[in-house]
C-alpha cells in the first residue's frame, strides 16, 4: 500500500474468531450451571446479544472507527477538510441557512482570557446517538463499526434527528439535487450528515477530510479503529489527554478532540 490516503485495516478476522471462542465459553458456562430455565433462556440471550451487537447497541465490536482532532495543529484560515468533503461528497459548498454542511470549521474564543481555537466539527459518530434513538423508521442507524449513517431508503424527512442532535451535525436536503456523486447518494427531502466517507473506508482509504488535512501537512486529524489498542489513534488517545464535545450528555462520541 503505497497510497498515502490508505490506512491498513488490521486483522479483524482473528479478533472475530476470538470473540467466537468467548461465545463458546459462555455457552459452556451456561451448560455447567444447568437448569432447565437457564437452558431455555440461553438461545434467546445469545440471539439477543447478537442482535444488539449487530445493531451496534452493545459496543463490543472489534471495530469502532473514530477520529482524533488535534486543535493545536489545526490552522485558522485553512478549510482544506471542508472543501475536500464538499468536493468528494458532491455538496454545493454554499453556506446559506438551508444548505447542507457535513463538516464545518468552528472557532471558539474564551471571552475572559481571549484563548482562541479553531477546529472542524462534523457528525460525532456517537456510541449512543440521539439521532438514532429518535428516528421513527430506523433510517438513522449505527453501523456495526460505529459509523452513524442515514439510510435514505427509509428516511421520511421528519427532521426529528436534526432536532435531537446536540452537535447540529445533521442537515436536511431542502433543494433538488441532480449532481450527486455515485458514491454519495443524496436527495431532496431526506436528512443527511457526515458519513465518515464510509465508501472510502470500505475501500481501505482515509476519509476525504483526513486525507486533505494530511496532504496539507497539518496532520490535525487522525482516523482509526478506537477498539484496536495497537492502532495509532488508540495509542495517541492513551498517551495524551483528550476530550469529546458535550461529554456530559453521555452519547460517547467517536470523535475526540485535543487542545480545546
Amino acid at each position: 500500500m503505497t497510497d498515502p490516503d490508505s490506512f491498513v485495516p488490521q486483522d479483524t478476522k482473528a479478533q472475530a474468531e476470538s470473540e467466537d471462542s468467548c461465545d463458546v465459553g459462555r455457552r459452556r458456562l451456561l451448560a455447567m450451571a444447568g437448569g432447565v430455565a437457564v437452558l431455555a433462556l440461553a438461545p434467546g440471550v445469545t440471539v439477543w446479544a447478537r442482535t444488539m451487537r449487530a445493531k451496534g447497541l452493545v459496543d463490543a465490536h472489534p471495530v469502532r472507527y473514530g477520529l482524533l482532532i488535534d486543535a493545536n495543529h489545526c490552522q485558522s484560515g485553512c478549510d482544506a477538510c471542508v472543501r475536500a468533503c464538499n468536493q468528494y461528497n458532491g455538496l454545493s459548498g454554499q453556506t446559506g441557512p438551508d444548505n447542507a454542511q457535513w463538516i464545518r470549521k468552528v472557532t471558539i474564543q474564551d471571552p475572559k482570557t481571549g484563548f482562541t481555537r479553531t477546529f472542524p466539527v462534523m457528525c460525532q459518530h456517537c456510541a449512543k446517538p440521539a439521532c438514532v434513538a429518535v428516528c421513527p423508521t430506523g433510517a438513522s442507524f449505527r453501523r456495526a463499526d460505529g459509523i452513524v449513517l442515514v439510510d435514505k431508503h427509509r428516511c421520511i424527512g421528519c427532521r426529528y434527528c436534526l432536532m435531537a442532535c446536540p452537535y447540529q451535525a445533521r442537515s436536511f436536503v431542502a433543494h433538488k439535487v441532480d449532481d450527486q456523486k455515485p458514491w454519495a447518494p443524496r436527495g431532496k427531502g431526506t436528512a443527511e450528515g457526515c458519513t465518515l466517507c464510509v465508501e472510502r473506508i470500505d475501500r481501505g482509504k482515509l476519509p476525504a477530510c483526513v486525507a486533505a488535512c494530511a496532504r496539507r501537512g497539518h496532520k490535525a486529524m487522525l482516523f482509526g479503529n478506537l477498539h484496536d489498542p495497537q492502532s495509532a489513534i488508540a495509542k495517541r488517545l492513551a498517551q495524551y489527554a483528550s476530550t469529546t464535545i458535550r461529554a456530559d450528555l453521555g452519547m460517547e462520541p467517536g470523535v475526540h478532540y485535543r487542545g480545546i
Binding site: 485495516p9 479483524t12 478476522k13 472475530a16 449487530a54 472489534p62 456495526a144 463499526d145 470500505d202 481501505g204
Partner: peptide, 12 residues
C-alpha cells in the same frame, strides 16, 4: 479491496 472489511461484520 472491500472484502478486507467484511470479515469484521459477521452479519447473519
Amino acid at each position: 479491496r472491500a472484502h478486507h472489511i467484511q470479515a469484521a461484520f459477521r452479519q447473519p
